[in-house]
């Protein structure tokens, strides 16, 4: 069995990748994907912890919260993509740096 610390390191790496994506990427759809990566980092952590709780037993609580959270992540993505569609209609571009009329 792979030790728990590897999973935690993986989750933290995913979290950093997601934050990097949010900070650096210019395409709005990539930002939405960045949000998904962030949420999935937490999911990986939950599943790893629930599997390593005790030998030969998998805690269902971690799994149930992950399933709920996947649903919410889907909802967030749906709303986000709707807003991206309207933003594309208004601005004619997906470049998030063009969306800076609201400064100060």
């Amino acid at each position: 069995m792979i030790p728990l610390s590897y999973y935690i390191m993986g989750a933290i790496a995913l979290y950093i990748v997601g934050m990097y994506c949010l900070a650096v990427k210019r395409n709005m759809i990539r930002l939405v994907i960045g949000i998904e990566i962030l949420i999935n980092a937490a999911h990986l952590n939950f599943i790893a912890f629930s599997a390593h709780r005790s030998p030969s037993f998998i805690d269902p609580l971690g799994h149930s919260i992950v399933i709920m959270s996947i649903v919410f992540a889907g909802c967030v993505t749906a709303v986000a993509l709707t807003i991206v569609t309207y933003a594309y209609k208004h601005y004619g571009t997906l470049d998030v740096r063009k969306l800076r009329r609201l400064r100060w």
Partner: peptide, 19 residues
């Protein structure tokens, strides 16, 4: 869009803390 990105990232952070 700005609100969604920031707030959803915050929500994911809460989820990581919960894990």
């Amino acid at each position: 869009f700005k609100y969604l990105i920031m707030s959803a990232a915050g929500g994911a952070t809460i989820l990581l803390a919960m894990s």
